[in-house]
Structure formats: C-alpha cells, structure tokens
C-alpha cells in the first residue's frame, strides 16, 4: 500500500551512507510529524524539500519547485481539455 502524500522535510539528521546510524529526516504533512529513513532515497534531501515515503523510508526527493511544477502541469492539462 502506498502513501500518496509527499511529506515536507523539516530537518535532516545524520550522514549519507552510514549504516550504523542510518540518516533520518523529520518530515511533516497534515500537521503530523514523523521521522523517516534516508538510506534508499534517490537524492539526499535538504530542509524544505518534499519526500515520497514508503514503509518508513523516503524513496524520492523533490524540491518545492518541482512539486509546484507537477501540479501546474496537471492544471494546464485540465485547462486544455
């Protein structure tokens, strides 16, 4: 089962590639905060980025600009019909 909401990065803890203390991000969506692992994410995020999360792990990072762009693209398409 997949989680549709991208979650916003509030804080990044730890270093890339550390398996003893895997890196984490504190993320937020709909007023709730949680920690997610960053071991398998495609691009190491920084504060303000959004993360697509699966089973407690971030799987994809997108910037706010990319997030907005994807929504805009869809809106454009809807307008065009």
């Amino acid at each position: 089962m997949c989680l549709a909401i991208p979650m916003k990065v509030l804080e990044v803890k730890g270093e890339e590639g550390d398996f003893l203390n895997p890196p984490l991000a504190v993320v937020e969506a709909s007023g709730l905060k949680k920690e997610v692992r960053l071991d398998i994410v495609d691009r190491f995020p920084s504060e303000g980025d959004f993360l697509i999360v699966h089973a407690g792990f971030a799987i994809h990072t997108l910037s706010e600009a990319e997030a907005k762009e994807s929504l805009k693209a869809l809106e454009e398409m809807a307008k065009g019909v």
Binding site: M1, L3, A4, I5, A29, S30, G31, L32, K34
Partner: peptide, 12 residues
C-alpha cells in the same frame, strides 16, 4: 480534523 485525516491517510 486535518490531523485525523493525516493519521488516517498514513495508516490507511
């Protein structure tokens, strides 16, 4: 509430 909606979304 938005938070309840969020919890529901995350926990399915």
């Amino acid at each position: 509430k938005e938070e309840v909606r969020g919890v529901c979304e995350i926990l399915g």
